[in-house]
Design a protein around this nucleic acid. Structure first.
Length: 306
DNA sequence: CCCCAGGCACCTC
DNA sequence: GAGGTGCATGGG
């Protein structure tokens, strides 16, 4: 087993907990078993786990934020992967300078300062957000764990067996009945058909070749992917930091705080709210607002103990 | 019993 | 293309 640390002095502000528990990614889980089911329980420097296929063999990564650095343990050298997956090279101060200020945005950024956008691997991101339709955040996590255990390649780590997120081929071999038995509901055929498409060579990565709005349209060719899920994959996996997923929460936010941005349809409302949140990094701003408003009224979370 | 959850496919018109 | 409707599952 390998261990390592990543100093956070040079990365600018970083908050692992907010980054991984803000509903951006369903590909990480918390080691203490909380597993995001009670999101009001914030503990500070928890260990988080994920799997990666960025190297030849699937690997497990365990990481926590402690004493001003990231500590990790893995079956591989996790430093470059964590830098990529957690966007540690984003210049958060520069991003904040390019976003507008209003009372809501200022409060959200202040409350969760250090939260990064994640950079999930595209296929698992695509599948997990197909599963997210009309579903609570905690159950989306559970579904992904079920998919791992049912179809993923086992990886030994810490004398335990973990399961890598299934490949397109592994998921394409699942049956719709099996997937329904994992409580995927009506998303079961969407997952299977999209996995088949990717296994046959149509990959979400192709969207990178297009300008933002065309990229969103391109992703909707996958079954179970509409504008909203496409925006999530663009923002949380494919480096389109201007993408603003228009979900129920951000629609409520628009109705309450930015009513003039509601243009009655997805594309035009998207353009208006992106302009309002700062066109270049609107997705960053949106993610701060989403996390802040979803936890409005709760006690402020305890940040990582530095 | 109701309603809702980080919506989407499918059918009309 | 815009607008309605059915859809699985679990929790409050």
């Amino acid at each position: 087993m390998k261990r390592g640390t990543i100093a956070l002095e040079d990365t600018g502000p970083f908050d692992l907990q907010s980054t991984l528990e803000s509903g951006q990614s369903y590909l990480w889980w918390r080691e203490d078993g909380n597993d995001f089911q009670d999101e009001s329980v914030f503990g500070g420097n928890n260990w988080y786990l994920t799997t990666t296929r960025e190297r030849k063999t699937p690997a497990v990564i365990r990481v926590r934020q402690y004493d001003g650095q990231l500590e990790w343990e893995s079956t591989i050298d996790a430093t470059p992967i964590l830098e990529r997956r957690l966007r540690l090279t984003d210049d958060l101060n520069a991003i904040r300078q390019k976003t507008p200020t209003d009372p809501l945005i200022d409060t959200a950024f202040e409350q969760y300062w250090g939260m990064r956008i994640v950079r999930d691997p595209p296929f698992p991101s695509l599948i997990s957000f197909i599963c997210s339709a009309q579903m609570h955040v905690s159950r989306i996590h559970e579904m992904q764990q079920s998919l791992r255990e049912a179809y993923g390649t086992p990886v030994s780590f810490h004398n335990e067996t973990y399961y890598a997120y299934p490949t397109p081929e592994q998921l394409a071999d699942a049956t719709e009945v099996e997937l329904r038995d994992l409580s995927l509901g009506y998303r079961a055929p969407y997952v299977k058909r999209t996995a088949e498409m990717v296994a046959e060579g149509t990959t979400p990565n192709e969207a990178r070749e297009y300008p933002y709005e065309d990229a969103r349209e391109h992703l909707t060719q996958f079954v179970g992917v509409g504008d909203k899920v496409a925006d999530c994959v663009l923002l949380f996996a494919l480096d389109f930091l201007e993408a603003v997923p228009l979900d129920t929460w951000i629609r409520k936010t628009i109705a309450e705080y930015y009513p003039d941005c509601d243009r009655g349809n997805y594309n035009e409302t998207s353009a208006a709210i992106r302009e309002r949140l700062g066109p270049e990094f609107a997705g960053y701003t949106q993610t701060y607002l989403f996390h802040y408003l979803r936890h409005a009224g709760e006690e402020a979370p305890v940040g990582p103990i530095q």
